[in-house]
Design a protein around this nucleic acid. Structure first.
Lengths: 111, 111
DNA sequence: CCCATATTCAACCGATCGGTTGACGAATGG
DNA sequence: CCATTCGTCAACCGATCGGTTGAATATGGG
């Protein structure tokens, strides 16, 4: 479950895989539907999905013939925390602070 | 300067390079000193440093014979922002909020 | 000047990566 | 039952990766 920083960062290093994550942000998808917009084989996409699952960034559940892919954003947490360790060098980081507040408060207001 | 997400994430995917960044968090270092704690050749470390510089995560400045390596934490910003796009799925993320506040306020208090 | 130090370059190596293709297995439905 | 759809497996390919070694290129100091 808790994948290493190695696997998470290397999973994120490929633009196809990042695009897949972005697509899954909107909704869960079947493997075939994930592959559709890409100009590469289904097998290639299937491999990318295995790598994303190995990094914990998605989970896959088979229902009938169809394997559904679901984003698991929590897997980014360890990587994010690691990166935050370097943020202390930024003078105040007001931008990030405001973005953070806007997101949290916006969520509270609308949820 | 502004490196791609590809180069940043793949630079971060290697544990040796992450350890180098961690070392540079404490202070600027010469190439030879960066290499010292690792059980691999100087040339290998030199290559790692080139990759980190290519990703914008460090800069290197030659003074005399010695090439100094300096952390550039801002290079993590784009990657961090990209990752934050997935954070909205986390219910409230109080942990991150508190960590953020602690860091920012702690800096203000001690600075 | 000459030698030591600091770092990179160049060639090489085996392993992994990202892709292909074709065969295969598993579930669906007329 | 049989054709079809969904997805993976296996073998293969060229390219890139992470490492080595040895030579080359500065630079500094006595």
């Amino acid at each position: 479950m808790a994948a290493s920083l190695d696997t998470v960062f290397s999973a994120l290093a490929d633009p196809t895989r990042r695009e897949i994550l972005r697509m899954l942000l909107e909704d869960d998808m079947a493997v075939t539907d994930v592959a559709e917009p890409f100009e590469m084989s289904l097998a290639a996409i299937s491999k990318h999905l295995v790598i994303l699952a190995g990094a914990g960034l998605i989970t896959q559940e088979k229902r009938g013939r169809v394997k559904w892919c679901k984003l698991e954003p929590d897997a980014l947490k360890a990587a994010s925390v690691w990166m935050q360790g370097f943020g202390q060098f930024e003078p105040v980081n007001l931008d990030a602070f405001e973005a953070f507040l806007a997101r949290e408060l916006g969520e509270e207001a609308s949820g």
